[in-house]
Computed example of a mutant assay.
Amino acid sequence: MEPLLLGTVVIAAGGFAFLNGFHDVSNSVATAVRTRALTPTIAVLLAALFNLVGALLSTSLALFFTDAGFGLPSGSTGLGILLAALLAAGAWGVFTWYRGKPSSSTHALLGGVIGAGGASRLTDGPAMDGAGEALLLQIVLPLVLSPLVAYLLAYAAVFPATWLLRHRSPGRVNRDNRMAQSVLAGAFALGHGLQDGQRTMAVILLALVGSGYATGSDMPLWVQVFAAVLLTAGSLFGGWRITHTLAHRLVHVDPLRGMTAQGVSSVMLFVGAISLHFPLSSTHTMSSAIIGAGANQRFASVQWPQVTRILAVWLGTAPITALLGAVFLLALSPLL
């Protein structure tokens, strides 16, 4: 039964990677498409290519997740927790896509793991323990603080960007910023691949380690390629509902502020993935940067009622997916 459960977890992880790319490609292309720096087709192709490259570049974050392990039990119980978490995160991702609301796949996955782990106790299964401090300081805290940091950095970055371009004509400023956005769209997608591509790798590696098919110190090449290809495939199909929200319903952004938001969020993803080994939500980072850059304008351009609704979705992601994860784990418990 355990090999079958392992295969199901791998398939579900592939579906999660596809949905992640489908859901989050909007973050890479929204501002570039909104300011006409790129056409929608070129933007999506560019994002998909750099998502693939980013996911193939590094496995350090995935190995960190595996090392932390959340105290995941071995055997069928651990596989059941992972499967329940993936199903919960996938269900939330489909719902938020349908509603056109940007949300964090990482928050959803963590919420699902925590909820499923708690439900395991109700079925007299092994408990998850031993990773509380690492979970709080190195995973939850960066995810919670990153939107605030992105907002403040983007708001502040508009000032030097405006000062540097003060002597140029508006036409040239817009043209140059659109060119910069074309480059930064690829850079952000690369950062997204570095960050989110490794979530799927971590889940599969945890499943393999818990089943005794791998060690936690090395990432099998097929796992990395599997996650990268499915993340890229999801990006190619593109969830345009969320692109419309970020580009048109959230804030009226010009090329300079769009370039600033993309630059700030790209740098944060790279620093988090490569230097600090912190997981950051690309959705939260880009959305907050867009709001921060857009708020730094002479006219009130931010649609605050829409921002409030998005914040409600963000705050509800972890609790709702935790509840879903618990429900799915209880439903799976007869098979574990």
Rank of each mutant, 00 (worst) to 15 (best):
I42H: 10
T59Y: 00
S235K: 05
L56F: 08
S301H: 13
E2W: 00
L79R: 00
V113L: 15
T162S: 13
A116K: 02
H277F: 06
Q195K: 05
L190P: 09
V313Q: 02
A228H: 06
S266E: 08
G21V: 12
L109M: 14
G294Q: 05
T8Y: 05
W163N: 10
R199L: 11
A247K: 06
G117K: 05
R172V: 09
M201Y: 02
N296L: 00
V313K: 01
D129E: 12
S103L: 06
S104K: 11
E2P: 00
F50P: 10
S287T: 15
L206N: 00
T66Q: 11
P142A: 08
G69P: 08
F22N: 09
A48V: 04
L280S: 10
V33N: 01
T321A: 02
L194T: 03
F16I: 03
A30F: 00
W97Q: 04
V264I: 13
T215P: 00
A17C: 13
S104E: 08
A202D: 08
V251M: 11
L336R: 12
V10T: 13
D254R: 10
S211Q: 04
F159S: 07
A91F: 12
D67R: 15
L329I: 01
L256V: 11
G117M: 03
L184C: 08
Q262D: 13
S104M: 09
L315Q: 09
S265W: 10
L141H: 01
A119C: 05
V267C: 10
D129G: 05
Q198L: 03
G239L: 06
T283F: 07
L136E: 08
V302T: 12
P220D: 03
L208E: 10
I81R: 02
A312C: 00
F299P: 00
V113C: 01
A37S: 13
Y155K: 09
S146M: 08
S217T: 14
G111Y: 02
F18G: 07
S60D: 14
F299N: 12
G14N: 09
Q297N: 10
G263D: 05
T243D: 00
D176A: 08
Q297M: 03
T35I: 01
Q306H: 01
A68E: 09
F70Q: 10
A326G: 14
L329C: 03
S169I: 06
G71W: 12
L82T: 11
N296W: 01
A157F: 15
L208H: 10
W163H: 14
P170T: 11
S74Y: 01
W314E: 04
L153Q: 08
F50S: 13
S182C: 11
V225E: 02
S281H: 08
V183L: 15
A331G: 14
G294E: 03
A189P: 07
N51C: 13
G292F: 02
V203R: 06
W92K: 00
S120V: 10
A161V: 14
L269R: 08
L236K: 02
T243M: 11
S76L: 11
L52M: 14
H277Q: 14
A318M: 15
Y151S: 06
G212N: 07
A233D: 03
P142K: 07
A331W: 13
L72S: 06
